[in-house]
Design a protein around this nucleic acid. Structure first.
Lengths: 199, 199
DNA sequence: CAGCCAATTGATCACTGTTCAATAACCCAA
DNA sequence: TTGGGTTATTGAACAGTGATCAATTGGCTG
């Protein structure tokens, strides 16, 4: 079959990403394959490679989109005057997001050994943006702490929360599930903040 | 070729695991394949399946062995009277271990969707054992806190440290590398402890 | 309406995990 | 020593994977 152009390449891009998302959320990360994506959108596998470099490119794009999505959700949270509460809210929203995107979230734990050139940087940037949001919330709660320090603390908190969600979503520890994960993250945030205030 | 019995099945088991470890540490997780293991030990791929259920079984075994190894290293640390220092030492040893086993450590971030029956439990148990070691150190540093609470705090700290190592070993954030990871974990441990003492 | 252009395909390659009939080396009983 | 049973080991086979690319054919334009 020759050209069809039933879809623009932008539309095709959207179809591919959306099909990939569907597969991952319903069948799991390992079920994602070029042929399965193609089957679902009614194209052949080769077409994917006109739009994306390779499967990893697709996975990274999904990851970045997801982190962008999370960024927006976190940014939407507004303080009602209680700065510490905003920190808690932010972390809680983070955890709930990971559980709402249970399967997709595993994209973050994959290796992509520098497949492409630009995308890993973009992925880093998305995470950095999230850390910045946490840093802003943290900065408001700790007005006396210098900015430099705040950004370190934000990264520590983010990574810490990341770890709890990682352990929870992959069932690595017997006692950690959705509910305890939320409790743990809250405890981590509050206790860490308390420890900082003491300084 | 028929039977050779140049190695007992226990020896073979050891050869397989050691070859698998080598491949992962030198070539990375994705380079591990049944045929490559077989090639290295001078057997055919089918032989692996006499000893292990499947490749995931091998990966899980490596993971458990590694966690056991870490457990031993952490247990070997002894307090010199300063209980808080032991907590710091434990966490630091943990991080350094993850960097010493950079590639193998990624086994922890893999999904194995309940492949076999027993092994995932064994993997959970290994992590649980590590959390217990941290809990013991923590308990000594916080004699007033009830045991139940301590084990929660230990899990939170473990997961938190886990997250920092995860981000660091996979280069997920620009500013986090081996050195900063150690600093971050130290900061996390000390600040969290401080926050607990305040209560 | 001819002809160019390019989107799309499907065959192909080299790989993967896993299975299993066939084989051949070992061990033991006669 | 020989024969036969046992079984560890193999290699072919299957169904799948990601990726490539010549061939094709539909749509667009001059």
């Amino acid at each position: 079959m020759g050209r069809r152009s039933a879809h623009t390449s932008d539309e095709l891009r959207g179809l591919i990403l959306s099909a990939a998302r569907d597969i991952i959320e319903t069948e799991g990360l390992t079920a994602l394959s070029a042929r399965e994506i193609a089957r679902r959108i009614g194209y052949s596998a080769g077409t994917l490679y006109n739009i994306f470099d390779n499967l990893d490119d697709i996975r990274l794009t999904l990851q970045i989109d997801m982190l962008e999505d999370l960024s927006v959700k976190l940014s939407a949270l507004k303080s009602n005057g209680d700065a510490k509460r905003l920190v808690s809210q932010t972390l809680k929203t983070y955890v709930e997001f990971t559980f709402a995107n249970r399967q997709l979230w595993n994209l973050l734990f994959e290796r992509h050994e520098e497949t492409a050139a630009i995308r890993p940087q973009a992925s880093q940037a998305s995470l950095e943006r999230i850390a910045t949001i946490v840093a802003d919330a943290l900065g408001a709660a700790l007005p006396d702490v210098p900015h430099e320090q705040i950004s370190h603390h934000a990264r520590i908190l983010c990574a810490g929360v990341h770890g709890i969600t990682a352990v929870a979503t992959t069932n690595r520890m017997p006692g950690i599930n959705r509910e305890t994960a939320i409790l743990y993250v809250e405890k981590l945030g509050k206790t860490y903040l308390k420890g900082l205030v003491v300084d």
